[in-house]
Amino acid sequence: MIEAAKKNDGLSGAFLSLAAVIVALFFVFPIYWAFSQSLRNPLDTFTVAGLGIPWLHFTPTLSNWTDQLGTPETSQALINSTFISVSAAVLALVLGTSAAYAIARFRFERWKNRDITVWFLSQRVLPPVATVVPFYLTMRALGLLDTYLALILINATFVLPFVVVILRQTFLDLPVELEEAALIDGANHWGAFWRVALPLAAPSMAATGLIIFAFTWNEFLFAVTIGSDKAITVPVHIAGAIDTRGVQFWFMGVRAMTAIIPPVIIALIAQRYIVRGLTLGAVKG
C-alpha cells in the first residue's frame, strides 16, 4: 500500500483502533480472569457479577497469594521448574550451538546439510506421546523416576531442534569473512568458532535460551509422567490442585498466575525473535 493508503483516513483509522481494542480484550480476558479470581475471597467466587473487576465488584484480598506462596509445595515446584528449565536450556544450547555451526559453515557431502537440518527439525514435529512410554520404562529401570536429571534430559531433547534451526540461521547471517580472517591468522576452526562466531551469535543464543526456557517451563506430559513428588514442576503442581473437595477456584487463580507469569515475561523480553523461533527459522520476523 502506498503511504496515503497506509495512513488511513480518520474514520477507518478509528474503526481499526476499535477493532484492535476488541481483539486485545478477547485475548487478554482469560488471563485477566485468572488474576481476578486469585484476588477473591472464596465467597466471592460465584457471587461476583459481570466482569469481576476488583473494588468495583468485590473487595480484593491478597490472602490467597500469601496462603499459596507460603506453602512448601508451591516454592518447591517453583524452584524445581526454574532449575529444570535453566539446566535443559543450557544443555540444549551447548549441544545445539555447535551442531548449528557445523551445519552453517561446513559441507557434509554424504548427508547434505539441509537434510541434517530437517532431521533435527522432524524431532520437534514428532508426537511426544510416542516416546513417553519407553522413556518412562528406561528411567524406571535406571532408577531415575521423580528426579531432576530425567526431566532435564528429556526437555533438553525436545528443545534441541529449536537451538539447531534458529542458530543455524544466525550463523548464516554472520559474515563468514571474519572467521576466515581468523583462520588465516593461524586460528583453527575451534578458535574461529569460540572467539569470533560465538560472541557475535550471543544475543541470538540468549533469546533462544529464553524461548526454550519457557517451553520447558510449560511442558506437562513428561513432567506428570516422571515427576510426582520431589521433581514436581509448576504445571504438575497446578494439576494437583484438584482434590476431593473440587477445584478451589481462588487458589487455582494464584497457581495459574504463578505458572503463566514467568514464561510470558520471558517471551516479551525475547519478542524480536519469537516469529523466527516459533516457525523454526522458516519465517524471518
Binding site: 519457557a214 509448576v234 504445571p235 503463566i260 519469537i274
Partner: peptide, 11 residues
C-alpha cells in the same frame, strides 16, 4: 504473545 506462551495447563 501472551496466549502463545501462557502455560497450557494453567490455560
Amino acid at each position: 504473545i501472551l496466549p502463545i506462551f501462557a502455560t497450557p495447563l494453567a490455560v
